[in-house]
């Protein structure tokens, strides 16, 4: 076997790297049209890992005469750039983009859309500004080189009411529950609901900023809409009310489990170790999401199980 000088140099350089040298990661998008002019790039039904590059949430691109309206921009700058390239090459560029909420898998690709307006609810923009650094630190730790070039760019325009972007009408619902500000949209042309992370389907919901009572209320709003199809934040496009029913059932079962555990005198460590509710144990991203959710939500349930018996003397 004859090695060229270049191969030897490359091999030598690779040996010096602290982590195993792997091929530069690449986002492979598979956009598919689910309704007239509604393109869905389905996220991996997984947690954020070094394998999927953080491309886990659903991205929607709506065709207009002035280019695509992009709903959520991906989990890294390079993810955003891949989405942008698809829009530029196939959909005549980008008219505007939107962020449904402040979780990083939905907006860390904003940098690739910085030359166009980026819309989000005011509460989302505040949370993006406040949380950018911590979220970025966390993602760099998990994703490593996938994050190259990612400098979180909060949305630039507050959504105050219904929108018409590139001539395409969008009914805007400013809701909350999954986070403090959750944007849900209905594409008027096709009647497609773009629900953001208020809806999960066949994947365990994530709770880091959840207000379960508000989330239930949002679900009752979403459950009563006259729509032709639903794109959840995570999970497949569907034409029935499965995601609303499943997300609601998960919230109810989780709340009941926390109340039961706190009422029986369990510690949070035991509650976490017990794993998810049996009916939902098979969902993708469980037991990881359940364990995270116990830590995030435990305190409220514990407080109501422990009466005040004394204080400072």
């Amino acid at each position: 076997m004859i090695l060229t000088r270049r191969q030897i140099l490359l091999g030598g350089a690779a040996a010096l790297l602290p982590v195993p040298a792997i091929a530069a990661p690449e986002y492979r998008l598979m956009p598919r049209q689910v309704a007239d002019g509604v393109w869905l790039v389905e996220g991996a039904q997984e947690s954020i890992t070094r394998q999927n590059g953080g491309a886990i949430c659903n991205i929607v691109l709506l065709e207009t005469a002035q280019g695509a309206v992009v709903v959520d921009t991906g989990g890294t700058h390079r993810h955003g750039a891949a989405l942008r390239a698809f829009a530029d090459q196939r959909l005549g560029g980008v008219a505007a983009s939107l962020n449904t909420h402040h979780h990083p898998d939905h907006w860390f690709g904003n940098g690739a859309f910085a030359d166009r307006p980026i819309h989000a609810l005011p509460g989302t923009i505040d949370a993006q500004r406040a949380g950018a650094q911590a979220l970025s630190d966390g993602l760099y730790k998990i994703l490593g080189s996938w994050m190259q070039g990612t400098a979180p760019l909060p949305a630039t325009i507050s959504v105050e009411g219904d929108l018409a972007l590139g001539g395409r009408g969008l009914a805007v619902m400013a809701l909350s529950g999954h986070t403090g500000a959750d944007l849900a949209l209905i594409d008027r042309q096709t009647g497609t609901l773009i629900a953001g992370d208020l809806l999960f389907l066949d994947r365990a919901p994530s709770f880091p900023d959840a207000d379960i009572a508000a989330w239930r209320k949002a679900l009752s709003t979403l459950g009563g809409l006259p729509i032709s199809g639903t794109i959840p934040g995570h999970g497949p496009f569907h034409r029935n009310s499965r995601a609303v029913a499943q997300t609601l059932a998960y919230l109810d079962a989780f709340t009941a489990r926390m109340d039961a555990a706190a009422g029986l005198g369990l510690t949070p460590a035991e509650t976490l170790a017990a794993g998810p509710m049996p009916d939902f144990a098979h969902l993708v991203a469980n037991p990881a999401e359940y364990c995270r959710a116990v830590v995030q939500q435990w305190r409220a349930h514990e407080i109501s199980a422990l009466p005040v018996i004394g204080g400072s003397v």
Binding site: R257, A260, A261, L264, G265, L266, T267, E270, T271, A273, A274, G275, P276, M277, P278, A281
Partner: peptide, 10 residues
């Protein structure tokens, strides 16, 4: 003494 079993599926 670990009470995880008191929850369904625990």
């Amino acid at each position: 003494a670990i009470l995880s079993r008191r929850l369904p599926g625990g």
